[in-house]
Amino acid sequence: MEERNDWHPVALSTSIKPATSAGTRLFDEELVVWRDTGEATHIWEDRCPHRGMKLSFGFVRGDHIACLYHGWQYDAAGQCRYIPAHPDIKVPPAIKVKTYGAAEQDGMIWAALGPDLPPLPSRSATETLPVRSLYLRGGTGRALNLLRDHPPRSFTQEAGPAQIEPVSPTLFRIRAGTDALLIGVQALSGSRTALHIVIAGPAAAYQGAGQLHFLRWANALRHDAETVQVEPAATALGEAV
């Protein structure tokens, strides 16, 4: 499947703090996204080879992530390095977690399932501020229709209609007046989509009130998604039930 080879956003950068992990899905595959204490991000299959426990339930220590069940520790390459029940054995190389491509730019963490890593698209913003990750029922097509039908108002000035344009297959830019948002689109599954929303602009202009402005827009978008019957290409503004 070609789209598997694209880069896909899986979290806002600010949602994965140093030494934390979180679970997510991409095309229904369970992934653990974690950041080591050196701040590098890692994206792996969310499954400990020992007993199949989700590694996202575990915890990060330094540049290792440890499984919650029995404390097996894995290094940044996914190689098991330490088994607490057998502290003296050299861990066989075969005990390894499947790892995926991980990158960070535009305020988001990106995954590529491979096998080949595509080139990362060039950076779209020099500075970003997080708004939120929005989780919606339905596939990515429905989410994009919602975005087109419910564009945000500008924060910094009154302006004409917002414009949405693709930057890559999984990243969109919305311009509203002089404001710009970046929207990363994540296919959690065929029936659930995450939109990772950041402001492309300086903190001095948007921190606090600007973030809140676009948070309210995002929450209203979700409200419409859940209360209006949306069929692809059949929605229009003002159809609220």
Partner: peptide, 19 residues
């Protein structure tokens, strides 16, 4: 919440708060 089948994936702000 995992006891009743709700994972933490979709609650990034609560994950951070719980930390």
């Amino acid at each position: 919440s995992r006891d009743f089948g709700v994972d933490h994936d979709e609650y990034p702000a609560l994950r951070n708060w719980a930390r």
